[in-house]
């Protein structure tokens, strides 16, 4: 079986600004994948290219062996590559229940909608209490939960989380990390970007440092790495 995610020499950016300079990685064969690296070095652009929001100018992205480089976001979601963007505002005036219903928009996802809704409610009991509440009235942490729950509704074969704990208080961060662990335990493979190194190390055994628009370092499963070594990679020597 081919790897869930194979990226070859990916070049992408915005207008005249190139952010990714020939990035290559193969991921997902051995559990969750963590991406880390300094801000502004291409993590989010990489995720946006994977989900089709950014058109790569060169290179290739394969999802379970299928070339998805130039597919529309819609087609990519339909194949089960679900991207939960950073600081997602979601749909401010829709209720939680409506957001989740939209999450199951694709045909694949609709077939298992009820099942996934129960799963989401079990992982995020806080949301189940306020099903009819508009998203704009929720706190940042709760909105992040709706965002991930909406992603789960898409029946992900690979769930991509961009900074799920960004800007949250330590207590909420822990609650969300717990939820992300529960999502992973439910058998959904993750690609996760987060600045919280402890969270990454706890969730993913396969880590990539994204630096200057390429992969700066790869930590394979089995290789042990400490918090300090990662910090050193962030800041360079």
């Amino acid at each position: 079986m081919s790897a869930p995610l194979e990226i070859e020499d990916l070049v992408a950016g915005y207008g005249r600004v190139t952010v990714l300079h020939g990035l290559s990685m193969t991921a997902g064969t051995s559990g969750n994948v963590g991406l880390f690296g300094p801000n502004g070095h291409g993590k989010t652009t990489l995720l946006r290219a994977m989900s089709g929001l950014v058109r790569p100018s060169a290179g290739r992205i394969r999802f379970f062996g299928e070339d998805v480089t130039h597919l529309s976001p819609q087609a990519i979601v339909g194949r089960g590559l679900i991207h939960v963007p950073q600081g997602n505002r979601l749909f401010p005036d829709l209720s939680i229940a409506e957001c989740l219903a939209l999450g199951a928009w694709t045909r694949r996802a609709r077939a298992v909608e009820d099942e996934n809704r129960e799963r989401a409610a079990a992982i995020f009991p806080r949301l189940a209490e306020r099903w009819r509440q508009p998203v704009r009235t929720l706190s940042g942490g709760e909105r992040q939960m709706v965002s991930i729950a909406t992603g789960l509704m898409g029946a992900p074969r690979l769930l991509v989380l961009d900074e799920p704990t960004l800007g949250l208080s330590p207590r909420l961060k822990e609650e969300l990390a717990e939820a992300v662990r529960a999502v992973s335990a439910a058998g959904v493979p993750l690609v996760i970007v987060d600045e919280d190194v402890e969270l990454l190390l706890g969730l993913a055994k396969h880590l990539f440092l994204v630096n200057h628009g390429t992969i700066g370092a790869e930590i394979r499963p089995g290789e042990t790495i400490g918090h300090d070594a990662i910090m050193a990679m962030y800041f360079g020597h």
Binding site: V77, V84, P85, G154
Partner: peptide, 16 residues
């Protein structure tokens, strides 16, 4: 109604 509120998110749940 969703596409009116957030185009990126609309694309990421698979709306055309």
């Amino acid at each position: 109604r969703a596409v009116a509120q957030n185009e990126d998110s609309a694309q990421l749940v698979g709306l055309n």
